[in-house]
């Protein structure tokens, strides 16, 4: 009887310690990966460089689309910009820029200095529209397939590896 209790208690303890051990090595950075596989929400975004607005319903369903949330005040955005430029030449990909809580003057200066990779340039001046895409800090980048479903989500600046991954997906 005593032995049985001992075995039960030991097994529970071993299980708990094992899980705690596994949890030590876990990556603690949160990302909204749950959104992958969902259809993108219907949102109207104001054009940044002209009047009127862009509706996400207009997103092409013959090509892949990359939504990039950026701002001139964001340091990491500068770092990832050259990769966006690199991707902008791909024929099978449209890049939509969503400028996040930024001043038009600074944003335009940023683009004239670093180049403009965006086929469509829109703005989210108060950051509320971005909530619909599950954005909580920039830069964030979302890759959408022909069915308008989200297939990849990158939190933080994209890098060499991400560019290769994106190219592989769109050139399939």
């Amino acid at each position: 009887m005593k032995k049985k209790y001992l075995v039960i208690i030991y097994s529970i303890a071993i299980f708990i310690f094992f899980v705690l051990y596994l949890s030590l090595g876990k990556n603690k950075i949160y990302s909204t990966q749950d959104n992958i596989g969902k259809k993108i929400p219907e949102v109207q975004l104001n054009y940044f460089d002209k009047d009127g607005h862009f509706d996400t319903k207009e997103i092409s369903n013959s090509k892949f689309t990359l939504l990039n949330f950026w701002a001139s005040w964001c340091g990491p955005c500068r770092k990832e910009h050259k990769y966006l430029m690199e991707l902008s030449v791909s024929s099978n990909l449209i890049i939509i820029g969503i400028n996040f809580k930024d001043e038009k003057k600074n944003a335009m200066k940023f683009l004239s200095e670093m180049g403009n990779p965006f086929s469509v340039l829109t703005t989210d001046f108060d950051g509320k529209k971005s909530i619909n895409f599950g954005i909580y800090g920039i830069p964030e980048t979302i890759l959408i397939n022909e069915d308008l479903k989200i297939i990849k989500k990158y939190v933080g600046p994209i890098d060499d590896k991400d560019v290769r991954q994106i190219k592989k997906i769109i050139n399939k």
Binding site: L6, I9, Y10, A13, F17, L20
Partner: peptide, 12 residues
């Protein structure tokens, strides 16, 4: 964690 495990197992 290792210390805790040791402590718990030996006290039990």
């Amino acid at each position: 964690l290792s210390f805790l495990a040791l402590m718990v197992f030996s006290s039990i």
